[in-house]
């Protein structure tokens, strides 16, 4: 098994390429993240953290350079192939929670499993366990609009863990929460991480960054610290 789960080579992403308003969001990024790492992407706003996370989370296409995910160069992969990898190997936690408001907590957690072809009953059982694990055993059938921010983010974490991912990517998961709730949510994430997946987290919060085993610092779209 490859020790390096994610590696980039001269990765760049430009928006409005070739036009007068071209933006070089990230440029010449070379990073390596090992399996099981807890890595923090840090840096000021506009430094390219989110763009990088979206790229290595296979949500966006590269402009130049390469991304190796689990040892495979994914630059030539089709949309559906990328979707399959995301579904099976990546879990996302967003700052805005991004739950489906029509679905209950347990249905939101089931969804990635159902998309992966799991039987409904099996998915339900596993979703219930995951929600218990994040401390929401009594909120299974609530819908996101009826839940607090911290609860929603815990549902999102349970959803991210649904298909036993190899990597969980979290884009400022505590950014929309008060300090106390943010700390609780982070605890949930960290506890879950012990169960062997790679955690990559974007944060502004130095206190969170301290916990990270690896800190990758970006400025103006380039890595200035901790890439390799």
């Amino acid at each position: 098994m490859n020790d390096i789960i994610i590696e980039t080579k001269d990765l760049c992403k430009y928006y409005n390429q070739g036009k007068s308003n071209e933006v070089k969001a990230i440029e010449k990024i070379n990073i390596k993240i090992n399996r099981g790492d807890f890595a923090a992407l840090i840096g000021p706003s506009g430094s390219g953290k989110s763009t990088l996370l979206h790229m290595i989370g296979l949500l966006n296409r590269t402009t130049c350079g390469k991304i190796f995910f689990d040892g495979k160069d994914i630059s030539e992969f089709t949309d559906d192939e990328l979707t399959k990898i995301r579904r099976e190997k990546v879990g996302f936690v967003f700052q805005q929670f991004n739950l489906i408001p029509l679905l209950t907590a347990i249905e939101n957690v089931e969804l990635p499993m159902l998309l992966d072809g799991m039987e409904k009953e099996q998915a339900r059982g596993r979703a219930e366990k995951l929600l218990n694990r994040v401390g929401l055993g009594d909120r299974l059938y609530n819908r996101p609009p009826d839940m607090s921010g911290g609860e929603q983010q815990r549902v999102a974490i349970a959803r991210a863990l649904a298909n036993n991912p190899e990597v969980v990517m979290a884009d400022e998961p505590t950014g929309n929460l008060d300090t106390k709730t943010g700390k609780e949510v982070l605890e949930v994430l960290k506890n879950a991480q012990k169960k062997d997946f790679t955690l990559i987290i974007i944060t502004h919060d130095p206190k969170i960054a301290i916990f990270a085993k690896k800190r990758i610092e970006l400025k103006d779209g380039r890595v200035i610290n901790g890439g390799e």
Binding site: D79, T83, K84, R86, R87, L115
Partner: peptide, 16 residues
Amino acid sequence: RREIGVLKAIGATNSY
């Protein structure tokens, strides 16, 4: 749009 983006992010294919 946002929900559809989430669906795709968590593994829904284009045909789904």
